[in-house]
Amino acid sequence: MTHLKQFQGIPMSKSMRGLCREEDYAFLGISERTREEKTEGAAALEDDWRDKKEERVRRQLEREQQEKSRLREIEASKKEKEEQWRTHVAELTSSQEKTLQDRLTRLHRFREFQRKVLEEESGKEGAASGQTDN
């Protein structure tokens, strides 16, 4: 009689139910087992799908983190190169200023030397002309 309770949901007439015995319902049990297996298979597929989705999300997050770290490294490299360039430019400017200052100093000395020479020559000429006047 348990088969009556088990298979009550199957649409059939009362007379047909009386004629059928439990063995007649065996094929329904098989289909029920396959339905359970399909449900279990679907659950396994769903679990696999979730696992794959989680794996894809995890890999995507890893790629994003790698991209962020790569961008940070690039930015740090750019800052370092810019700082090196600024230092290089400052050194060049400093050396050029020193070179110009040295040139200016040499030019002043040369001009002083020229004035002394001109004064001496004009002094000799003035003395020579003064001697001829006397």
Rank of each mutant, 00 (worst) to 15 (best):
G18I: 15
G18H: 13
L19D: 06
L19R: 12
C20T: 02
C20E: 02
C20I: 10
R21G: 13
R21Y: 04
R21M: 09
R21L: 11
E22T: 09
E22K: 13
E22M: 06
E23A: 12
D24M: 03
D24W: 00
D24H: 05
D24N: 03
Y25F: 15
Y25D: 04
A26V: 09
F27T: 13
F27N: 13
F27Y: 14
L28W: 00
L28G: 00
L28A: 01
G29D: 03
I30D: 06
S31M: 14
S31Q: 15
E32Q: 07
E32S: 07
E32N: 07
E32V: 06
R33T: 11
T34F: 13
R35F: 09
R35Y: 08
E36V: 03
E36S: 06
E36Q: 05
E37T: 07
K38F: 12
K38A: 14
T39A: 06
T39S: 04
T39M: 04
T39E: 02
E40H: 01
E40D: 06
E40C: 01
E40L: 03
G41Y: 10
G41K: 13
A42F: 00
L45W: 02
L45F: 05
D47L: 12
D47A: 15
D48R: 13
W49C: 15
W49T: 15
W49K: 12
R50N: 09
R50L: 10
D51A: 15
D51V: 12
D51H: 14
D51G: 14
K52S: 14
K52H: 10
K53S: 06
K53P: 00
K53H: 04
E54S: 03
E54G: 04
E54I: 04
E55G: 09
E55A: 09
E55H: 03
E55V: 03
R56C: 08
V57R: 11
V57G: 04
V57D: 13
V57P: 05
R58V: 04
R58L: 07
R59L: 12
Q60T: 11
Q60P: 01
Q60E: 11
L61H: 08
L61C: 06
E62S: 07
E62K: 02
R63M: 07
R63T: 12
R63E: 10
E64S: 00
Q66W: 03
